[in-house]
Design a protein around this nucleic acid. Structure first.
Lengths: 188, 188
DNA sequence: TTGTAATAACTAATGTTATTAGTTATTATA
DNA sequence: TATAATAACTAATAACATTAGTTATTACAA
């Protein structure tokens, strides 16, 4: 019998991230993961409950990573600059980690508290960067939803190759954000 | 042996739509579908190539349905009214057919010509309703991408329960569209 | 209407994947 | 050092998709 491979949950998670970012979320399987870790498939169950739990963990982990990148991008900036920086980082994260980004929307349990918490932190950053605009409190929250919709929508369509026109993607993205910011219902 | 159940591809597709809209896209299986049609699982292969082909068909069919609903909503309208109507129909379609909407983004072959064609028709409607605004030709296409991002993003986040704040969803949606339209870079 | 061909239903079998149960050898710990 | 814990393994099971072949139901031609 092989000596212990020194595997733990984090090792498994990292390897899973590698696989989904390289091969796609749908390609993740217990067998593939075990092979990548040089152990037999059932051995994985010593560390994780199963494929479903792994996917849940990926979702939570992905949200946490997204949060970290976004928070880093907005430091020291405010107003439009912060919004652009934050938004760009969102898209870059998804481009760097397509599988992990997808995982954040594919959690088996969408209601799990830790997932909700991780998502809430991401929302909070968006709230913060939009809070400096002179908007009604409630309006800010509406706009947060708007911005998040744009970010996710753009990323998702981009990832599925849905922007087929011969038109610069980054420019489309920039103009979309710009248009939204220009239209914000600023109070007088 | 049972008499022929009178099943064809369309019957299968409709039943599949029922299942995914009711139980979720992930719940679709050959066994479940066969059960719902009162035939044995292998019998389905007389009509469709397999689960993958079924999913592909669902994606194409979903885009077609979305197109029909959107085109119907915009008839006789133009400008802001058309955009609002179109956008609302988009969201309503997804709410009525959550599984089918999801299927449109989950095609096994994202590059299949018929899928691309169905998607293109949806894009064309968006192009048409934005074309009446005084924008540069290229800008129109950027804005089309923007609007599509918002529609898909909003719908997707809504479907995964990601809008957790106690805030009216339709109002958020309306304000998002309003903000974007207000910010459109109209030419003087 | 009848006989034949086509085909949609079935059963049996196979392959793939996730998971469970139990064994064994490797570590951790007292 | 001995024992307990546990991570590795193997074997087995269950579920699901699919293939191959059989049989009975229809469609079609004469």
């Amino acid at each position: 019998m092989a000596p212990r491979a020194g595997i733990d949950v984090d090792t498994i998670l990292q390897k899973a991230v590698e696989i989904i970012d390289r091969d796609g979320y749908e390609d993740l399987s217990i067998g593939k993961l075990a092979g990548a870790l040089s152990i037999r498939p059932p051995s994985l169950y010593n560390h994780i409950g199963g494929l479903s739990e792994l996917k849940q963990r990926l979702a939570v982990f992905g949200c946490g990573k997204l949060y970290e990148q976004m928070i880093g991008a907005a430091v020291g900036l405010s107003g439009d600059e912060a919004v652009y920086a934050l938004s760009l980082e969102y898209v870059y994260f998804a481009r760097q980690h397509p599988g992990l980004y997808e995982a954040t929307f594919r959690a088996p349990d969408l209601h799990a508290p830790d997932l909700r918490e991780a998502q809430e932190k991401v929302v909070q950053i968006v709230v913060q960067v939009l809070a400096v605009y002179k908007l009604d409190e409630e309006t800010i929250l509406h706009m947060v939803r708007g911005l998040r919709s744009m970010l996710h929508g753009f990323t998702s369509i981009e990832q599925t190759g849905g922007f087929g026109l011969p038109l610069n993607l980054d420019e489309s993205f920039h103009m979309m954000i710009k248009t939204f910011l220009k239209g914000l219902p600023i109070k007088k």
